[in-house]
Write a protein that binds this DNA or RNA. Structure first.
Length: 591
DNA sequence: GCCGTTTTCGGCCCGACTGTTTTCAGTCG
């Protein structure tokens, strides 16, 4: 839904411009919030404008509504254009520079006429920044470094790259003396598909150990340089260019700190507001009685000297706020707080709910393991069934199977299945959806299979109408049970097909065709927004690894992360169902 | 700009760290 994305970007852009202009902070925040709401919206904005539902969205007021309506109607916004004309465009990217915020950028603009990163770099080198009140030598040096870092790094990194970095540091952290417990927090714990920085949390029995831990952390192998190092907090940049923030807390405050450091920021704001409403205050040290907290004598980097109402575990804090425990993947201020207050949160899918994997490869095409080896790995994971779905003939590079080879492969799968105990193998294929939506095998061949995955692999730059028609045609085929990685996107790589999702969802739901959440990084396709939209439209999802090796089968967790962030439960997911129901699902579509 | 079992006006989460500062502003998460 490019319109949603464009408008979300517009609101973020406007917020940036207003920030630099020095507009009221809360106004800026309001615009950022609208931007975020639009990003998360699972239905098409054009529709919500036409049927008036946009006015009902909490957080979108009259002003934003007016901007949205104008943009949907005309593809432009006069408010945005006026705003853009009043601030040099080159200043906006400077907000991404570490250590540079709106106030400093405005100051540089006003005092030295700087309007871009290039001009700032020149001014730093020529010494032109000297003498500005409030900007000293260290600040100038920090700006110089910030500009250099930005030139090198690509910003957010994918979860597939960030998780190994975090795991390595976590291991070293846990090995330090006096570290009681260490955990991943932040957006990585919430399983966002990309990560701005890695957040780690360590607890100690005695707060006095904090400084030594922070210093040791700043010198871990793999750490390139430290940004800040204090007794309760340290930030470093790794050699791979990822920023890692560490927070150190006494054990009795671990829960509150984990909650605070896991975020999201918007979730935190919401529950802190809730605390306030009940005469309490919530911070990273704990949940406190507001009156007692205000009277207490507080010191920087030390827990307040009063007893917390809750602080040891996240569950304690939520309970004291009158809420059910909220899983990290749900903490995005997407309505989870209200539901937690009513104890009405959805049951999320978990690893143990999965009964099989319905999209896997073997040595028959481009996999590295035999049918038997894949089956053994699936048994080890506790699966009840496994679909073997090798590539079809167009995938020449992947050693795709000709119809003749496929039929032999099917016979081999059935033979292996007869011998195996403890698991059922389904004979399948991952058949290419050609550019016009035709499938890479004839129906007569597909009819021989137990389970058919159809996926787009090439021509992934088609425009929306053509791409949508292509996938719809595949869904229309009675033998197709699952659309694999429906868009073909790659995180940090390619955009993928710009599908008209409402139409895809409708067709998939009506025809009894499942849509995949491909768990392989960097695919994660469908993404969380589309997965949520799919279940809202009554579509059955399927979470598969697309494994090309036995190890690949255990890479399911990224896919589960996407699903959980999309509020997906086991009832929505085909491969959480018993085999008999999976067979019925497939049979129902056939004549 | 957004919102309302504290409010249609007046609030809007909270603390750590850094740098340039004699008591605080800016940035970050």
């Amino acid at each position: 839904m490019p319109l949603n994305r464009d408008l979300a970007a517009l609101f973020h852009h406007m917020a940036d411009l207003m920030d630099i202009k020095g507009e009221n902070t809360f106004k800026v925040l309001a615009f950022r919030k609208v931007g975020r709401i639009l990003e998360d919206l699972t239905h098409d904005l054009k529709e919500s404008v036409e049927n008036g539902t946009i006015a009902q969205v909490h957080g979108i007021g009259q002003s934003s509504q007016r901007i949205i309506e104008e943009f949907v109607r005309s593809g432009r916004s006069t408010d945005f254009e006026e705003l853009r004309a009043s601030v040099p465009a080159g200043l906006v990217p400077l907000l991404q520079v570490e250590g540079l915020g709106p106030k400093t950028i405005a100051l540089l603009w006003k005092e030295r006429g700087i309007t871009s990163a290039e001009e700032l770099a020149k001014a730093i080198d020529s010494g032109a920044l000297k003498g500005i009140k409030g900007i000293g030598d260290k600040k100038i040096a920090a700006m110089k470094q910030g500009l250099e870092v930005r030139a090198k790094s690509a910003g957010r990194v994918g979860i597939g790259q960030a998780l190994p970095v975090a795991a390595l540091l976590l291991e070293q952290l846990r090995a330090l003396p006096n570290v009681e417990r260490a955990e991943i927090a932040g957006s990585l714990r919430r399983r966002r598909e990309t990560i701005g920085d890695v957040d780690l949390l360590a607890s100690v029995r005695d707060a006095a150990h904090g400084a030594a831990i922070a210093e040791a952390f700043a010198k871990f192998p793999g750490v390139d340089r430290a940004i800040t190092v204090g007794p309760v907090k340290a930030s470093v940049v790794t050699e791979s260019g990822v920023q890692v923030d560490l927070r150190i807390l006494p054990v009795e405050h671990f829960g509150a700190a984990l909650l605070y450091f896991t975020g999201s920021k918007d979730h935190n704001v919401k529950i802190r507001g809730l605390a306030q409403k009940h005469g309490m205050t919530l911070n990273e040290w704990g949940l406190y009685d507001l009156e007692a907290y205000e009277k207490a004598e507080k010191k920087t980097a030390q827990a307040p000297p009063i007893k917390a109402l809750a602080s040891r575990t996240e569950a304690d804090v939520y309970a004291k706020l009158g809420m059910a425990y909220v899983e990290p993947e749900l903490r995005e201020d997407r309505g989870e707080v209200d539901l937690a207050l009513k104890a009405a949160l959805p049951a999320l899918i978990a690893r143990a709910d999965l009964r099989g994997d319905l999209h896997t490869h073997t040595t028959a095409s481009d996999g590295t393991a035999s049918i038997e080896a894949m089956a053994a790995a699936a048994i080890a994971l506790g699966y009840e069934y496994l679909a073997i779905t090798d590539h079809s003939k167009s995938q020449v590079i992947a050693n795709g199977l000709s119809p003749e080879r496929l039929l032999k492969h099917v016979a081999a799968i059935r033979k292996a299945n007869d011998k195996l105990k403890g698991i059922t193998l389904l004979a399948g294929a991952e058949v290419d959806i050609l550019a016009d939506g035709e499938l890479d095998y004839d129906d007569a061949i597909l009819a021989e299979l137990d389970f058919v995955v159809a996926s787009p692999h090439f021509a992934l730059k088609q425009e929306a109408e053509k791409a949508t028609a292509r996938i719809l045609r595949a869904i229309d085929n009675r033998y197709v049970n699952l659309i694999g990685h429906p868009t073909g996107r790659l995180i940090g790589g390619r955009e993928g097909l710009p599908l008209d999702f409402p139409r895809i969802f409708k067709a998939a739901a009506e025809s009894g065709t499942a849509l995949e959440i491909n768990a392989g990084y960097p695919r994660l396709d469908l993404n969380e927004v589309h997965a949520r939209g799919a279940i809202d439209a009554g579509v059955t999802l399927c979470i598969d690894t697309d494994a090309h090796s036995t190890d690949g089968l255990s890479e399911i967790d990224f896919g589960l992360g996407v699903a959980r962030r999309a509020w997906v439960g086991p009832k929505h997911v085909l491969n959480c169902w018993p085999l008999q129901r999976v067979r019925e699902f497939a049979a129902k579509k056939r004549p």
